[in-house]
């Protein structure tokens, strides 16, 4: 099978360091992975190509990079599976959201700093148990899904918020935070959540699902972030725009069956947050001029009482 690997190159030691793309034409086997292709380039065509890899079997997490714009483990991705509609070319780039050291190798400090920031160790309180702590089976089975993380950074590479705000803790670190918040042996849930509801924490995620889509281990970072939000509200952290948004949203649907868009910002910021409310006015006015503003008197759907009944019933089950 003939393929062309279009690789983004960057050499900091060159006379004028600037990224560029270089194409490599290869003859590879149908079963070959992107990593097989890259290793072939390095060993047979161009020894200057820099890349990271070790296990070659999706275990060590070294080989995350972008192929055709999305983060993958190069060793877990068959070239054939990414060639659509007769195309024979793949574009290979380093992982995103981390500084590039050389070619496909990125600096992982950004990743580890965030993992460290969530204090990824058990923090029990009280007298240490005499024997080992026996954790309930189902709790640990549930956590095994998060512990499956191999720290490859694919999620961090493609996170849409990290792209615009370096302060965000990001999917891998927040998933790791969940792993400790939800661990029955940990007693620091409340203080951990108190930090996680701050700027850069759980409420800053856009729910774009990039991390869910690209994670090679099914960790579902976004799902863990949503679970953290829920736990934060349960632990009494109502006082953030995110928490108020979620609660106002639910209230609107509960009472009318649909979303009351006009009331949503008021509920989110709090009616007394004059600064934020004022900020809404210019858009609101413009929208009104163009007949775009949501109706002031939000009409309930016919049969809204059925929706209310479902809310009461399902919420009481928790």
């Amino acid at each position: 099978m003939e393929v062309t690997l279009n690789v983004r190159r960057y050499d900091p030691d060159s006379a004028k360091p600037a990224p560029y793309y270089q194409e490599y034409d290869l003859e590879i086997d149908e079963t070959h992975t992107v990593l097989d292709g890259l290793i072939k380039v390095r060993e047979e065509v161009d020894g200057t190509l820099a890349l990271r890899c070790s296990c070659r079997s999706a275990v060590c997490g070294s080989c995350a990079m972008r192929v055709n714009g999305h983060a993958v483990l190069a060793c877990k991705t068959k070239v054939r599976d990414l060639l659509h509609r007769g195309s024979t070319k793949l574009t290979v780039e380093p992982a995103g959201n981390m500084p590039i050291i050389k070619d496909l190798v990125v600096e992982f400090n950004v990743f580890w700093d965030k993992i460290r920031a969530v204090e990824p160790w058990l923090q029990p309180q009280g007298v240490p148990p005499q024997q080992e702590y026996i954790a309930p089976n189902e709790d640990m089975l549930h956590l095994a899904g998060v512990m499956a993380c191999i720290m490859c950074g694919a999620c961090v590479s493609d996170c849409t918020v990290l792209e615009v705000d370096k302060h965000f803790l990001g999917p891998a670190a927040l998933a790791k935070a969940y792993r400790f918040v939800a661990d029955p042996r940990d007693d620091a849930e409340k203080s951990r959540l108190g930090k996680l509801v701050q700027y850069g924490g759980v409420w800053d995620c856009t729910r774009c699902m990039q991390c869910v889509q690209v994670c090679p281990k099914g960790v579902d970072p976004m799902g863990r972030i949503m679970a953290l939000r829920d736990r934060a509200i349960e632990n009494g952290y109502h006082n953030s725009n995110g928490a108020r948004h979620a609660e106002t949203f639910a209230r609107s649907i509960k009472h009318s069956g649909t979303l009351d868009e006009l009331r949503l910002p008021i509920g989110t910021f709090g009616i007394w947050n004059v600064k934020e409310m004022l900020k809404l006015i210019p858009l609101g006015l413009k929208a009104q001029m163009r007949g775009k503003r949501p109706p002031i008197f939000h009409k309930a759907i016919p049969g809204a009482e059925n929706v209310r009944r479902i809310f009461e019933k399902v919420e009481s089950k928790r």
Partner: peptide
């Protein structure tokens, strides 16, 4: 009714 838009789902 509304689908919940993913917001309701994060709560329940």
């Amino acid at each position: 009714s509304c689908t919940g838009a993913g917001v309701l789902q994060e709560k329940n």
